[in-house]
Simulated assay, not measured.
Amino acid sequence: MFDHVKFGVTDYAASKAFFLKALAPLGVTVASEGPPTYGVELCARGKASLCLFQTGEKPAHLHLAFTAETRQQVDAFYRAALAAGATDNGGPGLRPHYHANYYAAFVIGPDGHNLEVVCHVPDA
């Protein structure tokens, strides 16, 4: 759980487009936006936000985990992220070594960040 996470990206337009497409299954849209050096705030239903801004520096690797309400959202994120240009880092499925209902998918985004969407509830 987080209020917001803000990090730099090396190609603002490409990263913004990637995250909007990959996270669309979770209801993520643009909440606010300034110039690329300030960035964009992406949010779903007024909850925690993800903020991206343009930087010339290559950021360190980052792991971001987003909460899904259903396993179908995890599956949809994975398909959307791959279609948006992500690299597979672990397809949708149970990860029982975390807990019995940990259903997640992992991809590597445009700047090498490990992105995860996880659902913690049993399948309906």
Rank of each mutant, 00 (worst) to 15 (best):
E41S: 13
H4S: 04
T67F: 00
D11R: 14
A22N: 04
A60D: 11
G112Q: 08
L20R: 03
E116P: 06
G85E: 09
H113A: 15
V30L: 06
F77T: 06
A84Q: 11
D123F: 07
N114Q: 09
P36I: 04
L20Y: 04
P59S: 12
Q54H: 13
P96V: 08
G27D: 07
R79P: 04
A65I: 01
D123C: 08
I108V: 09
P92A: 08
R45N: 08
K21R: 15
P35N: 13
F77G: 05
E69V: 04
T87I: 02
A80F: 13
T29D: 13
G109R: 01
P110H: 06
Y78A: 06
A124Q: 08
D88P: 12
A76W: 02
A17C: 05
T87W: 03
D88L: 11
L64P: 06
G8K: 04
A83I: 05
A83C: 07
A13S: 10
P35A: 15
N101H: 11
P35R: 15
F7V: 12
G46A: 02
C51G: 03
F106N: 05
D11N: 15
A60F: 03
A44W: 01
C51H: 04
H99S: 08
A105H: 07
A22T: 03
D75Q: 15
G34N: 12
Y38K: 03
L23Y: 11
G34D: 14
Y98H: 11
C43P: 00
V5Y: 08
G39I: 02
A76H: 04
L62F: 04
E57R: 02
G8A: 13
E69S: 12
C119F: 04
T67E: 10
A84E: 09
V30T: 14
G46D: 11
M1P: 09
C51T: 03
E69H: 08
L82C: 03
F18T: 01
G109N: 07
A44N: 01
E41L: 05
P92H: 07
A86V: 05
V5I: 15
H120I: 11
V118D: 03
G112M: 05
A60T: 09
C119M: 06
G93I: 13
A31D: 15
C51I: 03
A48G: 14
Y78H: 14
A31L: 12
H113Q: 15
F18W: 07
P92S: 07
F77L: 03
V121P: 00
G109F: 05
T37P: 00
T67G: 00
P110L: 08
Y78K: 10
G93K: 14
A22D: 03
A105D: 09
F19H: 11
A124F: 04
G112D: 09
D111Q: 02
A13I: 01
G91K: 11
A68P: 06
H61T: 13
P122R: 06
L50G: 03
S15M: 06
L115C: 10
L82S: 05
V118I: 13
Y12K: 02
E69L: 06
P59W: 08
H120W: 14
T70F: 02
L94Y: 15
V40W: 00
G85F: 10
I108G: 00
A31P: 00
